Computed example of a mutant assay.
Amino acid sequence: MNTRDLQYFVALVKYKNYTQVAKQFQVSQPTITQAIQRLEREFNAQLVRKDRGHRDEMITRSGQLLFENARLINERIDLAHQEISRANQKQIRFGLPPIIGKLYISRIVQEFSGDLLSRLKITSVGSRDLLNQIRSGKIDIAILGSTAPIKEPGVFADLITTRPFGIVVSDHHPLARRNRVSFKELANERFINFDQQYIHQAAFQAYCTYSRIKPQVMVYRLPDISWVKELVRQNLGISLLVRDAAINEPGIKVLELTDPVPERFYISVAMREGYVLSEDEQNFVNRLHQIRLDD
C-alpha cells in the first residue's frame, strides 16, 4: 500500500473535493482518483460514493472507518520522519514544568557534565502542555507532575517520587504562627488559585470535598506560579501549593496539612510510547531517576 494514497484519502474526506485535494498536493486530479481506486481494491470496499450530488454523504461507512485509521497512520508516519531526521542530532529535547524545574534544575546542573547540559533544549510549560508536546513529537523526554500515576494513551511514564501539598500563607497572616493546619479550619479563608495549574486545582477540589467546605476562591490568569506566591506574600489570600514550590521563600510560610487526604504531587519521567532513546538520552533518564530531593 502506498502511504501517499492514505494522505490523499484523508484530505478527500476533509475537503470532499477532488480538485482541492489535487491542488493541495500539487498533483493532477486523475492522480487522486487513481489513488482512491487503489485503496478500494486494497480493501475490497467502496470508499467514495459514485453519486457525488450530496457532498456530506460522499464518503461511505467503510470510507469513514478507513479515514479514522488512516489519520492515525499518517500521524505516526509524520512522527517517524521527525524522529529519524533527528536521529543523529546530539540535542536532547527535554520538558520541565516551572514548579518541578525549581526542584530539579540545580540538581541537574550539579549532576550532569557541561557537555550534556549544553545539549539540553529545555521547554518549560505546564505538565498538560508537555504531555501534548510529547505526543506530537515536539519534545522527547519530560518530567511531569500529576495528582495520580500517569496513564495517558501514547505516553510511557515512570514514577520518580511524590511530594506533599501544603498551605502557603504570608508571614503577616495569623496562621503564620502555626506549623500545621487542617483544611476544614480554612473555610473562611480567601484562596488564591492560578487558572493554569490544573494539578493544584484537582488537589484543591479533593481537599474541599473531604473537608466539606467551600472557601472563597480568587482565580487569576497569571503567567506563572511566582505571581500567586507574590499575592500570598502581600497577604491578599492563601494558597494550596506543592510544599517545595514555596519553601525558603522570603515573606511566606508553608503549613503542613493534617488531613488524611491521599493527594500528593506525583513526579514522573515520561516519553512517547515506542520512542527509542539514544545512548545519551538513556543515560540522561537513568540519572534523572537517581536524583533525590530533600524531604
Rank of each mutant, 00 (worst) to 15 (best):
S127N: 09
E40T: 13
R243S: 15
L79G: 06
D195Q: 05
L240I: 06
A142L: 04
L79E: 03
P223R: 11
L39S: 02
A206L: 14
T258E: 13
S146V: 01
D158Y: 00
A70R: 02
R190M: 06
Q7P: 01
N17S: 13
K16R: 11
Q29L: 04
S106M: 02
D51L: 08
F284A: 04
R177H: 10
R71P: 04
V48F: 01
H289S: 07
Y207F: 12
E111C: 05
S182E: 14
F94G: 05
L12R: 02
L103P: 00
Q282P: 04
P250V: 08
H81N: 10
Q24T: 12
I225H: 06
R93V: 09
L65P: 05
P30W: 05
R128H: 03
R52N: 05
H81S: 13
L175E: 00
E40W: 05
S127R: 04
Q205M: 09
A11D: 02
P149R: 08
S239M: 01
K16L: 10
N286F: 05
V217T: 11
P250A: 13
F112S: 06
R55P: 06
A206G: 08
E75W: 11
H172C: 08
E185P: 03
Y8G: 01
R55Y: 06
P215Y: 00
L96R: 12
S113A: 03
P149F: 03
Q82H: 06
D224I: 02
R292C: 02
T3R: 08
V232K: 07
Q216I: 12
R190N: 14
A22G: 03
G63C: 13
G154N: 07
K16Y: 08
Q26A: 15
L293N: 03
R41L: 15
Q37S: 15
E83K: 13
K214H: 08
I143Y: 00
N17I: 04
K16I: 07
V168N: 03
G95P: 05
Q89W: 13
A22K: 01
H289M: 07
K121S: 11
I100K: 01
E189M: 07
I192P: 00
N74T: 07
R178F: 09
L117R: 05
D294V: 06
C208P: 08
D244R: 13
Q34A: 06
R52T: 08
Q290I: 08
A80E: 15
N2G: 10
Y15I: 00
K121A: 14
